[in-house]
């Protein structure tokens, strides 16, 4: 059973959490080319948020080229191959921010590397 995880206690907005979860599912190959995403109404009801929150998450994924949004029909996965190539500099900036926060927590270089290795392991184990 494919699921996405939502945390109302998190500081990250719910639409970003939804987009991140779908991005992960596509990256791992759990959602493949042509597969339908849940309808905006159904997902909003299940998560317990406004329709606009889910629509916003789907728009983010559509902007990244991960899903195809067509009026009147469900969003479809376009697959990783057609995804817009991410800006390497932008990703490096985001990773740099994560590294900064880990270092500020008092972790050394090796601990930061171990942290990333564990995160990568968990990502592919899911």
């Amino acid at each position: 059973m494919l699921t996405i995880e939502v945390d109302f206690g998190s500081d990250r907005p719910v639409y970003r959490q939804i987009a991140e979860q779908f991005r992960g599912l596509v990256a791992r190959g759990d959602l493949i080319d042509g597969e339908e995403l849940p309808s905006v109404r159904q997902l909003a009801a299940n998560v317990g948020v406004n329709l606009n929150t889910v629509a916003k998450a789907y728009r983010i994924l559509a902007d990244e080229g991960l899903v195809d949004l067509r009026h009147g029909s469900r969003a479809r996965v376009l697959g990783g191959a057609r995804a817009r190539a991410p800006e390497v500099e932008e990703l490096e900036r985001e990773l740099g921010d994560v590294i900064s926060r880990l270092v500020l927590q008092g972790r050394g270089r090796e601990e930061v590397q171990a942290f990333f290795e564990t995160a990568v392991e968990r990502f592919f184990e899911r």
Partner: peptide
């Protein structure tokens, strides 16, 4: 819990 999972299939 404020953290939970939602299936992608219809209920």
């Amino acid at each position: 819990s404020l953290r939970f999972r939602v299936p992608l299939t219809d209920p």
